[in-house]
């Protein structure tokens, strides 16, 4: 598994959605934020912007939910996907979504190791870092805490 990961700092994010634009441009060839692999959630009441892309969870509910094995680590095998959208329902972060035109699910694929969103993020909310084991563990822990709390809800 690739050690580099996209780290998002919601407190640095200004919500300009350039990441959505460059991501959708790279993957769909046009500007269509609704099909971006990274999405900004805006909680206007609190002035909070949260970039959400695949967090590469250790427990991977999306992979567990997939009946055909199409949903894999940082990748969806389009040939195997049957469009049941179970992975989307399973992901507690909403990091996966469904493309009604190509009729398959999608998730962040890290742009083959050179994420466009990170390059486009001028406020510096997104970073693509070689996760040292420690950082990765920390991130995993945090993700797990979040995951548990989200499940509680």
């Amino acid at each position: 598994m690739d050690e580099k990961v996209i780290l998002a700092n919601p407190f640095k994010c200004t919500g300009c959605r350039v990441c959505e634009l460059v991501c959708s441009f790279k993957h769909e060839g046009m500007f269509v934020p609704s099909l971006s692999r990274i999405r900004i959630v805006k909680i206007h009441e609190m002035g909070f912007n949260n970039p959400i892309s695949c967090l590469d969870c250790s427990r991977m509910p999306c992979v567990d939910a997939c009946p055909t094995g199409a949903c894999q680590v940082m990748k969806v095998d389009t040939a195997l996907c049957i469009g049941c959208r179970e992975c989307i329902a399973a992901c507690p972060f909403g990091a996966m979504d469904f493309n009604p035109t190509t009729r398959v699910s999608y998730k962040c694929d890290l742009c083959e190791g050179d994420p466009e969103c990170v390059k486009g993020c001028i406020p510096g909310a997104l970073s693509y870092q070689v996760g040292s084991n420690q950082a990765k563990t920390k991130r995993r822990d945090r993700t797990t805490i979040r995951y548990e709390l989200v499940r509680e809800a």
């Binding site: 200004t14 300009c16 959605r17 002035g47 001028i122 406020p123």
Partner: peptide
């Protein structure tokens, strides 16, 4: 408490402010 950007703007000059003290408390917005 934060900066707010318009669509496709990397500058983000708009502010987000909170004030919960004093006689004018209850400020939470742009």
């Amino acid at each position: 408490k934060g900066r707010i950007a318009c669509f496709s703007c990397s500058t983000a000059c708009h502010r987000y402010v909170v004030n919960q003290n004093g006689p004018f408390r209850g400020v939470n917005g742009a």
